[in-house]
């Protein structure tokens, strides 16, 4: 696949919107505050431009990695900038000292749990909407350079393609506190998603 046509883009944006809407609600419930979340961007992006496209190049992020298993396999990354991670962790454990690059076990667990809730809500919505079976692996956390962590899902796609389909949304858009949720469907899953909704590649 070289490029998405208008119908494909439209459909995948809709799929992403349903997922992120649920994720935002889940997060707002936990934090007790309103969460803004962007309409997802859906794009096929060359590997070397992924970090830039997401808006994360050159930054250090906390990243929670999930394998997506089932009918639409792929990877989900939930990523927090330092400020947004601080905001989240301060809500749960205001008294715990926080060094972003050396998070405590408890802080790591809290971020992974937040990732679980967000990605779980996101994928449940997507699975229900598409009537497909999907499940998530256990979360894995790293705090490091955005590009280095983004390389992991890209390597998974690497033997098949030079471009990744990204379905990504940002939350906390109102300030420098930014979070990202990105779904990288595998090649086969992308084709299947488009087929399920009757959007042909020539449509």
């Amino acid at each position: 696949m070289e490029k998405l046509n208008f119908n494909e883009q439209d459909l995948l944006t809709e799929v992403g919107t349903i997922g992120t809407g649920h994720a935002a609600t889940a997060m707002a419930d936990i934090l007790g505050q309103k969460i803004t979340i962007t309409v997802p961007n859906v794009e096929l992006v060359s590997f070397n431009r992924v970090a830039e496209y997401i808006g994360a190049s050159g930054s250090n992020l906390a990243c929670i990695y999930f394998d997506v298993l089932g009918d639409l396999p792929g990877t989900v990354l939930v990523m927090f900038t330092e400020n947004s991670a601080r905001r989240l962790l301060n809500t749960f454990m205001p008294d715990e000292p926080l060094i972003f690059l050396e998070l405590s076990q408890l802080q790591q667990s809290a971020l992974m749990e937040m990732g679980n809730i967000l990605s779980g809500a996101y994928l449940t919505a997507l699975a229900d909407f598409s009537n497909q079976r999907m499940s998530l692996s256990v979360p894995r956390l790293a705090v490091d350079m955005a590009e280095a962590m983004l390389s992991v899902p890209l390597i998974k796609l690497g033997s098949e393609t030079d471009r990744a389909l990204l379905i990504q949304a940002r939350f906390f858009e109102e300030s420098s506190n930014r979070g990202y949720i990105v779904f990288f469907p595998n090649q086969g899953a992308t084709t299947r998603l488009l087929e399920i909704f009757g959007v042909g590649s020539d449509g």
């Binding site: 970090a51 590009e147 280095a148 390597i155």
Partner: peptide, 8 residues
């Protein structure tokens, strides 16, 4: 230069 090599 190259930024942010992970498993690569």
């Amino acid at each position: 230069r190259s930024t942010g090599l992970g498993s690569c």
